[in-house]
Design a protein around this nucleic acid. Structure first.
Lengths: 122, 122
DNA sequence: AATAAATTGATAATGATTATCACTATCAAT
DNA sequence: ATTGATAGTGATAATCATTATCAATTTATT
């Protein structure tokens, strides 16, 4: 692992807000000001390929997630914030998958709506 | 509804393969060769806002879906094909949503893996 | 230390989507 | 029928996120 890759990895692992690539870049720069956006993307993709982090595709661009394994997300359609939704049993939805079950490797579950702080602004 | 908007709408409604914007453009051109990509995007977004069609965000760019209401999708990580997954009970995953249930409006569920035809190529 | 291999930073290129803007189609009111 | 107001279009430029390129630097290997 190169120094830059370690910095990128640590940035994701210490983020609980599902950062975009740009947000990862800013956090990396706090610790290594010379680090470049291309390097961030390169290492994010490498870490994904290695299975060290995850990518989630939502409105406003892809985001990166330190949490492995299947878990649900919520995204606000007003401010685009993304957070984990715990306590949701995802195993139940796999039951109807008999026909294609052999080829299913993962499930993305994203709830959409308006977050509490955007609701409070009304 | 303008002629172009009708053409865009019909293109989506007659597509069961969750087309990208480019695929929608090609299908519109078959019936109205002068139609423009910007017009397609404009009308796709208008139709989404009106709730006439849906957008799903997956690898390889956004796709457009004639089917309203919550239903699950499958995307192949090899060829990127997207298709509906029927027979999956999605109501069960809403059970753990008490905390944020009031603000949840929709759920995206996308299974990921390798489709049957890509499996057969090995 | 010398060489090879891998990684970086800088930047150009790409691809998808959106914004702009001059022009055209629509349509109600004259 | 003609006008004027407005909405919508086509063409294209601009934007934004992401990827590709490549010379320079760092790291590993002999």
């Amino acid at each position: 692992m190169s120094k830059q890759k370690t910095v990128v990895y640590n940035a994701v692992m210490s983020s609980s807000d599902h950062p975009t690539a740009d947000m990862v870049l800013s956090r990396c720069k706090e610790v290594m000001p010379s680090i470049n956006l291309a390097t961030v993307y390169r290492n994010l993709n490498a870490l994904i390929k290695e299975g060290a982090i995850q990518k989630i595709m939502v409105d406003g661009g892809d985001r990166f997630d330190k949490t492995l394994g299947t878990h649900a997300h919520f995204q606000c359609r007003v401010c685009n914030v993304v957070f984990d939704v715990d306590g949701v049993d995802l195993s139940c939805i796999k039951e109807g998958l008999n026909g294609i079950a052999n080829q299913v490797e993962d499930v993305d579950v994203t709830f959409k709506g308006v977050c509490q702080s955007c609701l409070n602004l009304n």
